[in-house]
Design a protein around this nucleic acid. Sequence first.
DNA 1: CCTCCACAGGAAGCGCAGGAGT
DNA 2: ACTCCTGCGCTTCCTGTGGAGG
Length: 401
Amino acid sequence: MSDNLFAREFFKETVFSDRNLMTPHYTPPILPFREKEIGLLSKNLSLCLRAQKADNFFLYGKTGTGKTAVTRHVLAQLNAFATQKGLLAAGYYINCRQHNSKYQILSKLIKEFFPAENFMGYSASFVYEKVLDFAKKGNQSIIVLDEIDKVKDVDELVYALTRGNDELVNGGLTLIGISNNLTFKDRLDPRTKSSLCEQEVVFPPYNAAELKKILQERTLVAFKPLVVEESAINLASALAAQESGDARTAILLLLRAGDLAEKNNSFKVTDQEVLAAKVRVEEEIILDMISSLPRQQQLVLLAIAELSLQSKGVRRLGLEEETKVLFSGEVYEHYCWKAKELKETLISSRWFRQYISELEMFGLIHTTLSGKGIRGQTRLIKLGFDASKIRNQIEKQLQAA
DNA sequence: CCTCCACAGGAAGCGCAGGAGT
DNA sequence: ACTCCTGCGCTTCCTGTGGAGG
């Protein structure tokens, strides 16, 4: 065998028949337990195929409940059918995380509408007119705005698009907004709300039985036969169901479990791999979260981690294993000292408290108000995760900057 | 009982960066 | 290119809370 760098990896035995099918980019052809939602959407959108404007839809539900998958699926079917029959209807998918303003979304649209032309640097009103021009030719366009809560000027965007509709004699624009933020709707202007939410679909979380079915079907196509044990699927779906009912994390759990099985050369995915994968996935999320924190907040967390480690040194003599409880004031002092040492600017104690409560919201620390006992009214702070891991991660971050 | 301590967390305001309007 | 506006991170100031101590 050659000793090319990739030879070993290339010929290595794998547990997957197609690993790509376990990644979030993949939209499965069949979406179990979403027949009702698919039916609602397709029934409504079929109006577009008969050259009529359909109702605007607003879809919401937590991440990994199939909102995006369902919409993409319906859109793909509609586009295929329209092309085949030569109908002037098409769906366009836009992720608003990448295109997060009215102008950006409209320019993205005209690039899709007129792929041959180049529209660099045109004014907002020109772009808007161009969108209407396309509709005036009789086109029925379905515009999917995924993560619509990320758009800065949603009210203006929705207003522009729906009002444009009123001016059109033929052709039309149908909006489908997708959001996982449940409070988003309340932030909208009442007029925007009524025009965007002509129909609403709520995507409920999956329960354990549903997740199990989803995982079973996915492993059938993505894994080699007999690799994944039945009980491993049960465990993964139970874990994901109690966590969030999120299909994405359930699938990610199995993907990582598969990776681990390969790494350990066991080529079997059992409960053990799934449990190990859960720890790893959680760790990934936490370390990721830490690295996205602002610098000063990282310092605050570092101070907590260092203090917890110090106290552990003392307590190692005793039998106590759990992390020590820290006082808010004590942590602030250590933070100031640490920040001075690193020649960082200091934040006020008020903002420090703000950071503390944010860290708690992220689940990185736990705090309780000291009702009884020590120092009157203060917050008792406890680290949520392994102190040395957190410390290492932050120190790596600080050095990188 | 009152006062002090050590903090929690709300309200207002300040400086700044970046986008919109002209 | 210019000012104007707005949102954001943060400070300053303030009121509230509950145990400790005189």
